[in-house]
Lab assay of single mutants.
Amino acid sequence: TVKFKYKGEEKQVDISKIKKVWRVGKMISFTYDEGGGKTGRGAVSEKDAPKELLQ
């Protein structure tokens, strides 16, 4: 599970739902399947990112 803040809201998403991951400076950005055909997005700092996300 990845915990992150998006627009001031605390969120979390299961690693299995993450589609795409990329690095922006010291942040790790990602998109994930929100269900219902929607794609969500989020970002975590490199130090807070789970190891599975960095692979």
Rank of each mutant, 00 (worst) to 15 (best):
K19L: 15
Q12E: 15
P50K: 02
V44N: 01
A43P: 00
P50C: 04
K47R: 13
K5L: 13
K19C: 12
T39G: 04
G25T: 02
K51G: 09
K17R: 12
T1H: 10
I18E: 00
I15S: 03
G37W: 04
Y32S: 00
K17D: 10
E10F: 13
Q55N: 13
W22L: 04
K19G: 05
K3C: 09
R41A: 06
T39Q: 08
K51Q: 13
K17L: 13
M27V: 10
V13E: 01
G40M: 10
K26Y: 12
V24F: 11
I15A: 04
L53S: 01
G37T: 05
G37M: 05
T31R: 03
K3G: 03
M27C: 13
S16K: 10
G40D: 03
D48W: 11
G25V: 02
V44K: 01
V13Q: 01
K7N: 12
V13I: 14
K20Y: 13
F30W: 01
S29H: 15
G35L: 06
L53F: 05
K3V: 13
F4D: 00
F30N: 00
K51F: 15
I15H: 03
K20G: 06
Q12F: 12
K38Q: 09
K38D: 04
W22V: 04
F30M: 01
I28R: 01
R23M: 07
W22C: 06
M27E: 04
K19H: 09
K47E: 14
E52A: 12
V24W: 14
G42H: 02
K19F: 14
P50M: 03
G37I: 03
G37K: 05
F30I: 02
P50A: 04
V2R: 01
K3I: 13
T39Y: 11
Y6Q: 08
V44T: 04
M27W: 15
L53Q: 01
K17A: 12
G36Q: 11
K11G: 03
D14Q: 12
R23I: 09
D33C: 06
P50R: 03
I18C: 02
K7M: 13
T31W: 09
P50S: 05
K5Y: 15
K38L: 09
E52I: 11
G8L: 04
T31D: 05
G42K: 01
D33P: 02
Y6S: 08
K5R: 13
Q55C: 12
A49C: 12
W22A: 03
P50L: 04
V13S: 02
K19T: 14
R41V: 13
A49K: 01
E9G: 08
P50N: 04
Q55S: 11
T31S: 07
Y6M: 06
K51M: 14
R41I: 13
V24R: 10
V24A: 10
K47V: 13
D33E: 09
S16H: 09
M27F: 14
E10T: 11
K7W: 08
M27G: 03
G42I: 03
I28H: 00
F4H: 02
K17P: 00
A43S: 14
K47N: 10
I28A: 01
V2E: 01
A43E: 12
G8Y: 03
G25R: 05
Y6H: 09
Q12V: 15
T31M: 11
I15T: 06
A49I: 05
E10I: 12
G25H: 05
M27L: 13
K51E: 12
S29C: 15
S45H: 15
E9V: 14
D48E: 12
K51L: 15
L54Y: 06
M27A: 05
G36N: 15
K3M: 08
I28F: 05
D48Y: 13
V21Q: 03
T39V: 14
E10A: 10
T1K: 12
G25P: 02
L53M: 08
K17H: 11
K20N: 09
M27T: 09
I18H: 00
G35T: 06
K7Y: 08
V24L: 08
K7G: 08
G37V: 03
Q55W: 12
K3E: 05
E34R: 10
E34A: 15
E52V: 11
K7Q: 09
D14K: 08
L54F: 07
K38F: 08
L53N: 01
I18R: 00
F30S: 00
K3F: 13
D33N: 05
K5H: 10
L53A: 01
K7S: 05
G37E: 04
G8M: 04
K19M: 14
K11A: 04
Q12W: 11
F4G: 01
S16C: 09
K47C: 09
D33F: 05
F30A: 00
E10N: 11
Y6P: 02
Q12N: 08
V13C: 07
T31A: 06
K3A: 07
P50T: 05
Q55A: 14
T1Y: 15
W22N: 03
E10G: 05
K38E: 07
G37S: 06
V2A: 02
K11T: 06
I18P: 00
G8W: 03
Y32F: 14
A49P: 02
G40I: 05
A49M: 05
V13A: 04
T1Q: 12
I18S: 00
F4A: 02
K26H: 13
F4I: 04
Q12K: 08
K26P: 09
E34G: 07
Q12D: 07
E52C: 07
G42C: 03
L54P: 02
A43V: 14
V21M: 06
G35H: 05
K11F: 09
R23Q: 07
E52R: 08
G40Y: 07
S29L: 15
E10M: 12
T39C: 10
A49E: 01
G25N: 07
I15L: 13
E46S: 10
E9N: 08
K26G: 13
S45E: 15
F4Q: 01
E52S: 11
G25K: 05
E10C: 11
G42N: 02
V24M: 10
G37P: 03
V44G: 00
